[in-house]
Computed example of a mutant assay.
Amino acid sequence: MPSGGLFADTPAASDAGAAPASVQEVPHFHHHRQRLRQRFLAAGPDSVSDYEMLELVLFRAIPRRDVKPLAKQLLARFGDFNAVISAPPSRLAEVTGAGEAVICELKIVEAAAHRLARSRVLHRPVITSWGQLMDYCKTAMAHRETEQFRILFLDRKNVLIADEEQARGTVDHVPVYPREVVKRALELNASALILVHNHPSGDPTPSQADIDMTRQIERAAKAVGLVIHDHVVVGKQADASFRSLGLL
């Protein structure tokens, strides 16, 4: 065949050292993923930054793309790792690249964190696990964008027997009905309650509405022999105890 034939100018024919067409180049982020996983396993979670922790989560959702830019976008939008995994799906979807698979992975991590924290306090005396109880409340509520009111139900030995969300509200208000609180406590055969709600603003200082609502619940509870141990307001960085503030 003449030297100027059909295949003479193709890379496979003209470049003697070229790799076979079937061999694909390893993506530049492949080794980064391996190194990051190895560092995480060898040195623990404190060895990785927030965006690297997000990368580890996103690897499963996006197996064939560099996820570092998306991790940094999510942090820029929401602030930190906790805020990212706690963000509502509708807001996560506003970030370019955060599709259904990404949102699902983030919500799985959030649910796992809540379940783990809850398992450490459920069916245990609150007196000996108060720190873990507050950690659980912060994990579940501190980064929510709307108010949530939860009730922790205790038995006669102050063992946590149930933890339930009573109501959801807006960014600065949540409707709570004392009669419903008492009714549920009686259904569970509870002897005492701890009330918990969050302030999306981040400031845990109780409002006058919080104080009035707590007193209404306290009066309804006393009428049937229930004790209100505390009402805790959870903020993003701190919490406030009605008992410590002399409001109960």
Score class of each variant (00 low, 15 high):
Leu193His: 08
Arg37Leu: 14
Ala190Leu: 10
Leu152His: 02
His32Thr: 11
Val171Arg: 13
Leu122Phe: 08
Lys68Asp: 04
Leu160Ser: 02
Val181Leu: 05
Leu122Asn: 09
Val95Glu: 06
Pro11Gln: 11
Glu187Trp: 02
Ser241Ala: 07
Val234Ile: 15
Ala76Asn: 06
Ser47Leu: 07
Gln216His: 13
Val57Ser: 02
Glu218Ser: 14
Gly131Ser: 10
Ala190Thr: 04
Ala43Asp: 13
Gly4His: 10
Gly44Met: 09
Pro175His: 08
Arg37Asn: 06
Pro27Asn: 14
Leu92Glu: 01
Gly235Tyr: 11
Ala140Arg: 10
Ile103Ser: 03
Arg60Val: 02
Leu133Glu: 05
Pro11Ala: 13
Asp212Thr: 13
Ile62Asn: 10
Cys104Phe: 08
Leu41Lys: 03
Ile194Tyr: 00
His123Tyr: 08
Arg184Glu: 13
Lys138Phe: 12
Asn82Trp: 04
Ala209His: 09
Ile108Phe: 11
Pro175Ala: 12
Arg120His: 07
Gln73His: 05
Lys72Ile: 12
Leu56Gln: 09
Val159Ala: 01
Cys104Asn: 09
Thr146Gly: 03
Arg91Asn: 13
His28Met: 08
Gln24His: 10
His114Ser: 11
Phe7Glu: 10
His31Asp: 12
Arg39Met: 15
Ser22Cys: 07
Pro125Val: 01
Tyr51Thr: 06
Asp203Ile: 06
Pro175Ile: 07
Ile211Val: 14
Pro125Asn: 04
Ala76Pro: 00
Glu105Gly: 03
Phe153Asp: 04
Ser49Tyr: 05
Tyr177Glu: 14
Arg65Val: 07
Pro69Phe: 06
Ala221Val: 13
Ala140Tyr: 01
Met213Asn: 12
Phe81Met: 01
Ala19Arg: 14
Leu195Ser: 06
Leu245Ile: 07
Pro125Ser: 07
Asp80Thr: 10
Ala221Met: 14
Gly79Val: 03
Pro20Val: 10
Gln216Cys: 11
Leu122Thr: 09
Ala42His: 12
